[in-house]
Design a protein around this nucleic acid. Structure first.
Length: 710
DNA sequence: GCACTGACCGTTTTT
DNA sequence: CGGTCAGTGC
């Protein structure tokens, strides 16, 4: 990269990019060119003579990592696989460290990574073993507490001293056992990846220095979402050279529920006293009309760095607020609107994003998009890797790599059925617990267990032989060929046919998924220099739902994007639809009821609004079906805040204004005009604004917005 | 040991 | 409404 490229940046951005060494804090609002600064900075360091592998950039999602990699590639030209900066998520970074060092903590190097369903099965087992009825502590709750502790760096030994409620004490007691099961199963969960890395650094100075010495420069994106463990890992890695650049925005902190603490970004200079601070406050992404809504909304948050983003793009189309009778109508009209825009304007499907608070909301929109033949991508949600047949195959693969993996063993021990039933399975587990060894180690001895019939024992031994044979085979031959042979020998295709006797569609779809998985393995194998099943499984565990196969990529390149607000962080779209803007959804009722998390919901809303570049539509249905029954909804409080209608709830916006606005224009427009209306009619009503507005809005359901602007 | 049936219950967000 | 799980019959 040439220094002349710095001219493309504004002074603040240039300052951030051109700082060569020492700690640097970039406080960057939404759309101020954060990612650009990070990528330019990396490119510049390389041009100043830093070897690319000496640079570590940490991102929050795999998607962000991939995009950054691509942009840096554009800036510095394509390089050899071994001569690029390490750009990864916290979790991938920790996996790499642990694959090198975990034996120091007494784990085998072939550990597996458990996903939430594996965790769930461990939790259930633990609760049963200590005979805790699920009425006093549910597996979910246990996992929730464990995860909370782990994200604060609290291990099983320390947990009980942090427990307050009865459930927490119970959970703390189970925590030790849970961790024990994981260890004997040679497994780590997502939180362990971070926690164990931190523990490794704390207890093994040599490992810490060795890992820290790999890098000269560290950059962390989305720093506001860093939790205590992540913070300490970064501190360990950067403390020697102190070339640490963190970039973030406290207004976009939306992972508090996962242990993220905004304090880390607010108190950066406590630990890095000489840190330079650069603020980016000029927003290039959104029009002024959109940005002023966002600014108005976020001011309702009490605790924040006070800052106001300036819009570099004046004017713009006024954002719309729309309401519909039901959520089905909402989906229909939003999709119709998109379809119309694609036909009438130059807009392409990938100019649009539909953003949700919860994954469950996507269904209606998917159906609608499919029936309108508009291509779409659903980010997150139920993925290919959640399908039963895919999970089955992956369990077989996992077992080959890590036979101690108990959930994998339990999953496939009798899939397809080979006569090993509940009784035998219980006996196997019981024996494993008794000897505190992996269930796998019991398999050779099942003939001695009275609860194993000779038939079950025969099957178990045969199963053992099968896995052992393929352990050897996968080490020698090509992954794909071996996998195909493995699957044939398992007899999975016949099993699919047997369990779906009259449903050819289901048979094809299931078997197709198995073949897709093998294809993915093939693509992986073709791309890597040193492919291994273990690394393939790692990438699925870490990237999982975002892992796209090349074929999908082509297909979905130009598609409407459906995703949650959380998943939308860091992205931008010309046209954004935020749907389900109602109380109970955004803010989510769990955030309102269990604690004071409305501020985080407000930030979530803020993140959504600031994704939009040109055009923003907020909508909600007047009723929502839940468990088969339709229930009335209330518009989200954020709608009142961002339109300025919540400032004085007792004066409230006048009825006649809303009537005209909603009736004539068939849309409640937002923006500057509001102030005028509001002023001249404050005398109108003594009712709280919310009630009034919601009532008035309710009178004009299902009217599509007109083109009229204010 | 295995498949089918009805009662129950109710998901925030993610690596 | 739709997925999960315990209980029942073969």
């Amino acid at each position: 990269m040439k220094d002349s490229m710095l001219e493309k940046l504004n002074p603040a951005q240039r300052e951030a990019v051109a700082t060569n060494s020492g700690p640097l804090l970039v406080l960057a609002g939404a759309g101020t060119g954060k990612t650009r600064v990070v990528t330019f900075r990396i490119a510049r360091l390389i041009s100043k003579g830093i070897k690319p592998p000496r640079i570590l950039a940490v991102t929050f999602t795999n998607k962000a990592a991939g995009e950054m990699q691509e942009r840096i590639g554009e800036l510095i030209g394509k390089r050899d696989e071994d001569d690029v900066p390490e750009i990864s998520t916290f979790h991938s970074l920790c996996v790499r460290i642990l694959r090198r060092q975990i034996d120091k903590l007494g784990y085998p190097k072939t550990f597996t990574i458990y996903d939430s369903s594996d965790q769930d099965s461990v939790a259930r087992r633990v609760l049963r073993e200590v005979s805790v009825p699920t009425s006093s502590l549910q597996p979910r709750e246990l996992l929730f507490h464990i995860s909370q502790w782990k994200s604060k760096g609290i291990g099983p030994q320390k947990a009980s001293s942090h427990a307050v409620t009865d459930k927490e004490h119970l959970a703390a007691a189970c925590f030790r056992r849970y961790q024990g099961v994981l260890k004997t199963s040679a497994a780590v969960d997502f939180d362990d990846l971070l926690l164990l890395t931190e523990q490794l650094f704390a207890s093994h100075q040599d490992a810490r220095t060795a890992e820290a010495a790999r890098f000269d420069h560290i950059l962390v994106d989305e720093y506001q979402d860093t939790n205590a463990t992540q913070y300490r890992i970064i501190k360990s890695l950067a403390s020697a050279h102190r070339n640490l650049c963190v970039v973030g925005d406290d207004d976009q902190s939306i992972y508090g529920w996962r242990g993220a603490e905004v304090e880390h970004i607010l108190r950066f200079r406590d630990d890095w006293k000489e840190a330079k601070v650069v603020r980016l406050e000029e927003n290039y992404r959104s029009t002024d009309a959109i940005l002023s809504l966002a600014n108005r909304l976020i001011r309702y948050n009490k605790v924040r760095h006070d800052k106001t983003l300036r819009a570099a793009r004046p004017g713009g189309e006024k954002p719309k607020i729309r309401q519909f009778p039901t959520e089905a109508d909402e989906a229909k009209q939003v999709v119709a609107d998109i379809s119309r825009r694609i036909q009438d304007t130059h807009a392409e499907p990938n100019d649009f994003a539909i953003l949700f608070r919860t994954n469950e909301q996507t269904r209606a929109f998917e159906t609608e998009l499919r029936s309108q033949d508009i291509p779409y991508v659903l980010i997150g949600g139920m993925s290919f890797f959640d399908r039963k047949e895919v999970r089955d195959m992956l369990a077989y693969f996992r077992l080959v790599v890590t036979p101690e993996d108990e959930p994998a063993l339990m999953r496939v021990l009798n899939t397809p059925p080979r006569g090993i039933g509940d009784k035998a399975r219980e006996a196997l587990l019981h024996e494993a617990v008794k000897n505190s060894c992996p269930a796998w180690n019991v398999l050779p001895k099942v003939r001695q267990l009275p609860d194993f019939s000779s038939k079950a024992a025969d099957s178990a031994v045969q199963f053992l032989e099968l896995i052992k044979r393929y352990q050897a085979a996968f080490k020698k031959g090509s992954l794909v060929d071996t996998a195909n042979q493995f699957i044939r020998e398992i007899g999975y295709e016949q099993e699919i046919k047997r369990t779906n006797p009259d449903d050819v569609d289901a048979q094809e779809s299931r078997w197709g998924a198995v073949q897709e998985l093998v294809n993915a393995l093939g693509e992986y194998e073709g791309k890597r220099k040193r492919p291994s099943m273990q690394k393939f499984l790692d990438s699925i565990a870490l990237a999982g739902r975002e892992m796209e196969r090349d074929k999908d990529k082509q297909l979905k390149r130009n598609a409407v994007v459906l995703m949650t607000l959380h998943a939308a962080k860091g992205l931008e779209f010309p046209e954004v639809y935020m749907v389900g803007m109602e109380e109970g959804i955004l803010p989510h009722h769990r955030s309102v009821n269990d604690g004071d998390n409305v501020d985080e919901e407000r930030r979530l809303c803020y993140v959504g609004i600031t994704r939009a570049q040109e055009r923003l539509t907020l909508s909600f249905p007047l009723t929502r079906r839940k468990w088969g029954k339709a229930r009335d909804t209330k518009p989200s409080r954020f709608l009142f805040e961002l339109t300025g209608q919540a400032d004085n709830p007792h004066a409230g916006p006048p009825a006649h204004h809303l009537k005209t606005a909603a009736g004539k224009k068939k849309t409640v427009s937002t923006g500057q005009s509001k102030a005028g209306h509001k002023k001249k009619t404050t005398a109108g009503s003594s009712k709280p604004a919310k009630k009034l507005v919601s009532k008035k809005l309710a009178k004009f359901p299902k009217k599509s917005s007109s083109k009229k602007r204010t």
